[in-house]
Structure formats: structure tokens, C-alpha cells
Amino acid sequence: MADVWIPPMMQKLTGGAKRLEVPGASVRQIVFNLGKNYPDILEHLYDPEDDRLRPEIAVVVDGEVSHLGLMEQVKADSEVHFVPAIAGG
């Protein structure tokens, strides 16, 4: 199961849990599986109108910011972080 790091500002939505083992082979599955136990965090991360991660949020899988968002593949030993989205100059 992937090692999902919960951002400090969302830890109130996970009962204080900072890291969670979450099953899933893609970021989409991770986010929705996370949402099964913590529905509020799903709302925080997922934009249902456009079926995507919220545009302010980027997902980092195994150290690299993903361009693919929900489609990004996740391995059993992957590490997943959610960080603010940024653009370069």
C-alpha cells in the first residue's frame, strides 16, 4: 500500500493522522480510497466539477511533481505527497 503523507492543514480531517497506508494503483484510487474513511479530505483534494485534483494542489509521487494528477500511477511502495501547485519563470 502507498505511503500517503497528509499535509499539516488536512490532518484535522484525518483525526490527526500524519501518514496513512492507502491502497490504490493510481492517484485517483488513492484519493478515493482515502475519501472512504475521510470524506472531508476528498472534498479538499478533488474537484468534482472538472474531475481532477483541485487546481491549487499538486501531487508528488516518489519525489516528482506529477503532470498527470489523478492519472499518475502509484506503486505499492510509493510515497505520495500533496503540495501547493507552482509555476516556474
Binding site: 508528488v60 519525489g63 505527497h81 503540495v83
Partner: peptide, 9 residues
């Protein structure tokens, strides 16, 4: 690790 979590390659 950076403070925001991810580890450096």
C-alpha cells in the same frame, strides 16, 4: 526530506 515532505533524489 524537504519540510513539505518529498525526499530529494
Amino acid at each position: 526530506r524537504r519540510v513539505d515532505g518529498p525526499a530529494f533524489g
